[in-house]
């Protein structure tokens, strides 16, 4: 054991890098307790893709091939959203594990730790979406136009990240108001699936609702992806992407505030407990 004064601390900069690295290792380790790459690919991803196919086929039967492709694209992109929002579960789990107060009193900010707790699901979500993007359209006989479909892959990444930020915000809510937990966990991503242009264009909804839908993640990014596939110009696409990024940043900022608030409030009223 070293003497009390010989604390081996590094500079703050490398500290954050180390923390990021450690969080990543942590995530991978945790992921590996849930999945091997085989169960991930043939169990998890295959299940998600089947679900996407199911929605796409409904599209085909109730309408036509064009509708099928619309639904297919929407659902493939939504996969990355669905998975990255599992961060709600991993973060809420932190309270159940009783690690919250310990994180709160560590000298490094707990915020990046929290926000990093679901990164493995973000990665998994992006991977599922990209696999779906490459495999499903040709398989279902509605191939995407290439090379237009290539930049869309990068846009899926953006959508996944902004959905993750939104997920972090919801997780912050779930941690803060325990009574809301069940609602947040189950209903958080429902509005996105229902209203944000996955299965029906948002123009289908009442006019007053449409501006609100642009505040949700995925809406703008998905529109950008659809525009690219339709051969839209860059000047048509980039504002949508910028909006998607902005929405993500906004939710992220709210998530940070919300999580900080959990800790400050917890220190004051004793709700920073070791269990729920």
């Amino acid at each position: 054991m070293n003497s009390p004064s010989s604390l081996g601390t590094s500079s703050p900069g490398t500290g954050w890098l180390r923390l990021g690295h450690q969080s990543l290792l942590f995530s991978i380790a945790e992921m590996r307790t849930v999945h091997t790459w085989r169960t991930w690919l043939f169990g998890w991803v295959a299940r998600l893709l089947t679900q996407v196919t199911f929605f796409a086929l409904i599209g085909k039967f109730v309408a036509n091939d064009a509708t099928m492709q619309f639904v297919l694209v929407g659902n493939i992109v939504a996969l990355s959203c669905l998975e990255s929002m599992i961060v709600v579960l991993t973060m809420a789990g932190e309270r159940r594990l009783g690690t919250l107060p310990l994180l709160a009193i560590a000298p490094t900010s707990h915020v990046p730790v929290y926000l990093g707790r679901g990164l493995h699901w973000l990665a998994s979500g992006i991977a599922s979406s990209v696999i779906g993007w490459l495999v499903l359209p040709p398989l279902l006989g509605v191939p995407l136009p290439w090379p237009e479909a290539l930049p869309a892959v990068a846009m899926i990444l953006l959508v996944a990240v902004s959905c993750y930020c939104y997920g972090c915000f919801l997780a912050g809510l779930a941690v803060r108001y325990r009574s809301l937990q069940v609602i947040v966990l189950n209903l958080g991503y429902l509005p996105i699936m229902a209203f944000c242009g996955v299965n029906v264009p948002i123009s289908f909804w009442p006019a007053w609702l449409q501006p609100v839908l642009h505040l949700f993640p995925l809406t703008n990014g998905l529109q950008a992806i659809r525009a690219v596939l339709a051969g839209g110009t860059w000047s048509e696409v980039w504002p949508k992407l910028a909006l998607e990024a902005l929405v993500g940043i906004g939710w992220f900022a709210l998530a940070t505030v919300s999580i900080n608030r959990v800790v400050t409030k917890g220190r004051a009223d004793g709700s920073l407990e070791f269990g729920s």
Partner: peptide, 9 residues
Amino acid sequence: FWAALYRLD
């Protein structure tokens, strides 16, 4: 993990 949080190299 905790070592990283306590900024140990």
